[in-house]
Amino acid sequence: MSRIWVLLGERLALGVVTLIAISALIFLGVELLPGDLAQQILGQSATPETVEAFRRELGLDQPAVQRYFQWLAGALHGDFGNSLSNNRPISELLSARLGNTLFLASFAAAISIPLALTLGVLAALYRNSVFDRLCNVVALVCVSLPEFFVAYVLILFFSVRMALFPSLSNIDAAMPFGELLYRSFLPALTLVLVVVAHMMRMTRAAIINVLASPYIEMARLKGMGRLRVILFHALPNALAPIINVVALNLAYLVVGVVVVEVVFVYPGLGQLFVDAVSHRDVMVVQSVGLIFAAAYILLNLIADLLSIVSNPRILNGEG
């Protein structure tokens, strides 16, 4: 049993180290920005005195290492500094939008995960049947579609032609839950269509991979029925790869919202991020980038941990 704790600890430490490395990279990237940050914000016409004063205000006169740790410490407390474009505290901009983005991602996940797993298991069970081939073709098409194409097609049909759902998902926290679901239905559906295909294909592959093992043939030679072979013999061994696929797609959902949010003008982190990039508001880019990276790493970490825990060999130690 002790080995599992060592492994879990290792992965956890690795996750933290990666996150720190990435935060340093993000910070360093901004440091490497051509030209002086203060100069750039104030424009070429600013006098050297105002630039100097502004630099002091931003803390740019301090050494980079010191500023990095200040920034990191602030980020840990939820203080990301001020936006460059409108000088408001970034944390204020973030809090509501982070919630919105997580809501949208969870909404999509709640539909797509059960759907993809069911379809994947069915496709594996009825391998090479018409159902399986149809699933495969539809999945291939879905994987190939750009998110904005799916989004606009949905808008064209569901909001312009049929007027069933709104094309703009302007939500705020004060709305009742049903209203929230209604308004964010189209963006969620877009995300579902984009991730279901990939998850389904990987689930199918994981199960088929396990079904080729000699111990599955042995189970069949012991006269076990199809259902028992799948549930008792195959599934425990296919769990780790499936967990991985799900987590990977969850991570993708959190990130994949960027484009979808822009199309539906959904007030989430993604839209803020794109705006900040086009205005070169580096402080906001830094902060949102860090949050996205942290979410992504966290989900991958959870996947790692779960697949370790679900591996019977590791769980029971070596003989």
Binding site: S213, P214, Y215, E217, M218, A219, R220, L221, K222, G223, M224, H233, P236, N237, P312, R313
Partner: peptide
């Protein structure tokens, strides 16, 4: 199968379910 006719495979290590 398993009841009146049984099977012993070449590689027991691969034919026992690891789980």
């Amino acid at each position: 199968r398993g009841k009146r006719i049984a099977y012993v495979a070449q590689s027991a290590a691969a034919s026992f379910n690891p789980a």
